[in-house]
Design a protein around this nucleic acid. Structure first.
Length: 472
RNA sequence: GGCGCUAUCGUCUAACGGUUAGGACGGAGCCCUCUCAAGGCUUAAAUACGGGUUCGAUUCCCGUUAGCGCUACCA
């Protein structure tokens, strides 16, 4: 079994493309097949190196891998050879009509454009002569239409598909600059790379009929096809950079502090279901559960809003992974965001792990560790307004100073001892323990809310905790 | 315009032709509690519309409507 993901490097890695990669990858991994990354860069006008980087960066960030890698621009001879083979079989012809000449005909008649008048009938000798004379031409597939016949295939997701050749235009195989078109290059490579299953976006569903004509003309076996429903915006439009901005780029989610796998997990839930109500799944669970039968047919909305550009479900999936991942797996990731923000990562690995474990359960993204969780890793943090309010309660500061003094002589700086000491103080001063607790949390973490205040003490560490009480 | 695809809560989705149409996110409420999360419980919220077929239709068929895709020398 051989799967491929074939992006064209004309923009950054789109979340829809990422999902397509993931479904191919899941299928390959589940069946022990090979995953192939093929860069479809035959459109030399629009390709960019930057886009290429974005694809590798994006896939790398998502921690997705592949077994083989190709670049179509390095395989042009193969594509051209196959195109001319089809020509020699009499199944393609040279069309000398200048570019765009056919467009007017379409708008005038209102009907579909099928071929340029006269081009199909051009005698072979004249065609060869004009080509030899250097006249530019496109090589077009000669779609059989008298009589027209149905082209059929079975899509694993969409079921039986049929279209009459009477409705298929004579599409181009080779451009006038000699470059193969997408259809030609893609099919030639799929044959050469022995792709067994083509899993791609539904926008290619109707193109598949053309592809089948090419496979047949080349005398090659037709792969299995499975088309994926598209990802769309809340307004029903196809996701596009121009209209929807950064929500379509995977880097947005990386920068927002998503765990790579959590985002993969979220993307999987768009258009696919394990059908057993599971949603939060590990990578292995995803591989084990993935079935093409679980893919549905209607487009999925990425539910973002103008003010809030990230789908709430994505955030939820991320927070689930964030709090349930083995801490050891989370640490390097937290370390990275801390370092990126110039924060000091604790030397003591065990203490670091405990701190992360204490605070992670109420965080939703990795970025929370340097924002809401800043006080756990740095002395330069801001006191949230609501936290300041708690500190400004009458008598609160004095109580914290006293608490600090008492805790400083404690033998064991653990949660039980701290709690005992704090409650004793509350009773002596005849105040509610909660008042001291809330003020302490505010002083230690800069936040009005958070983990158990006693856990905050140990997470922040003795030295810092006492210092913050003193300076409260 | 032509051809094709699709249609279940706001969103993601589940439901051999027989279910009080299920779950999740988000919303509302309650419980728990040192706060906030988490967790538990409760709640509002859907089969686009019209015809068939059938004892019975979310499910099968047709039509309408809507959305999307393709209709390039883009992919």
């Amino acid at each position: 079994m051989r799967l491929r993901f074939a992006p064209s490097p004309t923009g950054y890695l789109h979340i829809g493309s990422a999902r397509t990669f993931i479904f191919n990858w899941l299928y390959a991994r589940r069946h022990g097949g090979a995953m192939i990354l093929r860069i479809d860069d035959t459109d030399i006008e629009r390709n960019t190196e930057e886009s290429m980087r974005s694809i590798f960066d994006g896939l790398g960030w998502l921690e997705l891998d592949w077994d083989e890698q190709y670049r179509q621009s390095e395989r042009l001879e193969l594509h051209r050879r196959l195109a001319w083979t089809i020509f020699e079989k009499g199944l393609a012809y040279r069309d000398f009509t200048p570019a765009h000449a056919g467009e007017e005909a379409v708008s005038r008649e209102g009907g579909p454009w099928l071929f340029n008048p006269g081009a199909r009938e051009l005698a072979l000798e004249e065609s060869a002569r004009r080509a030899a004379a250097g006249e530019p031409f496109v090589l077009r597939f000669h779609v059989p239409r008298e009589p027209a016949r149905p082209v059929e295939f079975h899509d694993t997701v969409y079921g039986p598909q049929v279209k009459s050749t009477a409705d298929i235009e004579d599409f181009a195989l080779l451009r006038s600059n000699g470059m193969p078109t997408y259809h030609m290059a893609s099919c030639a490579d799929d044959m050469d790379l022995r792709i067994s299953d083509v899993i791609r976006g539904q926008d290619h569903l109707s193109n598949t009929f053309k592809h089948i004509l090419i496979f047949e003309a080349a005398g090659a076996a037709v792969p299995r096809f499975a088309h994926l429903p598209l990802l769309i915006a809340p307004d029903g439009a196809k996701l596009s950079k121009r209209r929807h901005g950064s929500v379509v780029s995977v880097t947005t989610y990386r920068d927002a502090g998503f765990l790579p796998h959590a985002y993969v997990n979220f993307l999987c839930l768009l258009g696919w279901s394990p059908k057993d109500n599971r949603e939060v799944m590990s990578r292995q669970e995803l591989i084990d559960a993935f079935r093409l039968e679980g893919i549905n047919r209607s487009n999925a909305v990425v539910n973002f809003r103008e003010q809030d550009p990230i789908d709430p479900k994505a955030l939820w999936v991320n927070s689930e992974h964030l709090r349930n991942l083995p801490v050891a797996e989370l640490l390097p990731r937290v370390r990275r965001v801390l370092e990126c923000d110039g924060l000091q990562v604790p030397q003591d690995e065990a203490a670091f792990a405990r701190t992360v474990d204490v605070i992670r359960s109420r965080f939703t993204t990795l970025n929370d560790f340097v924002t809401r969780g800043r006080a756990y890793f740095s002395d330069r943090f801001e006191l949230a307004p609501e936290a300041a309010q708690k500190l400004n309660q009458p008598g609160a500061r004095e109580l914290l100073h006293e608490l600090g003094a008492r805790l400083s002589v404690l033998d064991d700086f653990d949660e039980q001892s701290i709690e005992a000491e704090l409650r004793k103080l509350a009773i002596e001063r005849n105040v509610k323990a909660g008042a001291i607790i809330h003020a302490a949390r505010a002083a230690l973490s800069g936040q009005p809310v958070g983990p158990s205040a006693f856990a905050v003490f140990t997470a922040v560490g003795r030295q810092r905790a006492l210092e913050r009480l003193r300076n409260a």
